[in-house]
Design a protein around this nucleic acid. Sequence first.
DNA 1: TTAAGTTAGAACGGAAGCGAAATGATAATT
DNA 2: AATTATCATTTCGCTTCCGTTCTAACTTAA
Lengths: 116, 116
Amino acid sequence: MLDELRPAQALKLWQTTSLIQVKDNAPDLTLRQMTILLSIYLEPPPHTVRGLAAKLNVTKPVITRALDTMGRLKLVDRKRDESDRRNVIIQRTVEGALYLEKMADIIVEQAKAVTK
Amino acid sequence: MLDELRPAQALKLWQTTSLIQVKDNAPDLTLRQMTILLSIYLEPPPHTVRGLAAKLNVTKPVITRALDTMGRLKLVDRKRDESDRRNVIIQRTVEGALYLEKMADIIVEQAKAVTK
DNA sequence: TTAAGTTAGAACGGAAGCGAAATGATAATT
DNA sequence: AATTATCATTTCGCTTCCGTTCTAACTTAA
């Protein structure tokens, strides 16, 4: 059971999952970038630069730059909020959803392997 | 139950664990760096640049640079292999062990929360 | 309508990452 | 002894990231 996961198993889960992604040539995201990406896909919209910066306790340029990079990778998209044009609304993409779906499958698979 | 870990829970586990680390100001390691670190601590020694490069399917300079950075952070250490001075033996540190212990605790805690 | 506030992004100098290719040290082979 | 192979690192030109500070665009309030 996952609620009985032990520390050594937890690390093994992280290791094998990460290793599979690296060998797959998945984008080499930083911890911050990954956290931003997961927040965008798991938390209810709308997502703004300011909101993410507050949530992660980082400065706004950190979010802006991460969105630049992940935008180039097509993992996220941006558009102006037309109701308040100071805001930018951060949007999910098909590529980003697929990327996280694949990652989730790897985690599930490795969780099974680790607790077996 | 473990085979009831669903993809959405897996991503939530990753997100909350990552978010806690970011808010804790944990080092902003890349996926590759994290994979290297976990491999060093979970796989039996000795660890070499060449071996890690092969394991992760990356070039040797990638390993060298990651060790430079994680060495500065005191997460790993290096020493020459005296039996074959071409090799470098990569070693664990107290700080690195503590860092991963803390990370493991967070994962365990979040795994409980996610499956509750 | 002018002033104050808010939001995202740009500019800065510096640190660290990349792949590809070259280097220096050491070991093994002939 | 000379050559070849191996190992980790350095170098190159370039990209991305950092924190800090500043700016442009926009909204709200006086």
